[in-house]
């Protein structure tokens, strides 16, 4: 050890040397004065070596880090770190972790409260309309005119019902 230790963050000569024991494992880190201050090591109470050592690439549990939400890009590791999910889709993507957690923190795992009835109806309407419209196109292009007429009528009925529901609100 003839050479002076270098800072683990910026490679300047290190003057701050830290050792922490977490789960019976020794972690050592060397820092220069500037980086030490930036990382808040001058205040040893509010600081964990683990935060410093963990780099996004070097994950100890790759299968956890690998899982990410296709919708918003939030990773399971992010969720474990912050306790917050990225988007609604994350509940499905990370269900293997979230579902058991829900049972632990709540009084059951299924919703029994208010349902956004009108919004759900609206969504059902819109989904149904989409299905009918693409069905209508198919029917026309494959010259099934009877089907096409039936679907056209159904679309008209559905739109009427949607307008009526909106007017009622």
């Amino acid at each position: 050890m003839a050479k002076p230790l270098k800072c683990d963050v910026c490679s300047q000569p290190a003057t701050v040397h830290l050792t922490q024991i977490i789960n019976n494992q020794i972690h050592k880190i060397d820092l220069c004065e500037n980086c030490a201050e930036q990382k808040g090591i001058t205040d040893p109470s509010g600081y964990s070596l683990a935060d410093l050592l963990v780099k996004p690439e070097s994950e100890s549990a790759p299968e956890v880090a690998a899982l990410s939400c296709p919708e918003c890009g939030c990773t399971q590791r992010e969720f474990k770190k912050t306790g917050r999910l990225g988007c609604a889709k994350c509940y499905e993507v990370f269900s293997s972790v979230v579902s058991p957690a829900l049972l632990n923190m709540h009084r059951g795992d299924s919703h029994r409260g208010k349902v956004p009835q009108r919004a759900l109806e609206r969504r059902t309407f819109i989904d149904r309309l989409g299905t009918l419209e693409s069905g209508l196109q198919d029917a026309i292009s494959s010259e099934r005119y009877e089907d096409a007429a039936r679907m056209r009528d159904e679309i008209i009925e559905l739109k009427k019902a949607m307008e009526a529901a909106a007017a009622e609100a």
């Binding site: 306790g83 917050r84 999910l85 988007c87 609604a88 509940y91 979230v98 957690a101 829900l102 923190m105 709540h106 795992d109 299924s110 919703h111 029994r112 409260g113 208010k114 349902v115 956004p116 009108r118 919004a119 759900l120 609206r122 969504r123 609100a169």
Partner: peptide
């Protein structure tokens, strides 16, 4: 909430209710 529902689509799951950033608030 009901009035806002007229204008906005809320993140909702039939199984676990209103979806929230923190799982401690999910459901109602």
């Amino acid at each position: 909430d009901t009035a806002l529902e007229e204008q906005l689509d809320f993140a909702f799951s039939q199984k676990i209710g209103y979806l929230t950033a923190c799982p401690t608030n999910v459901g109602t």
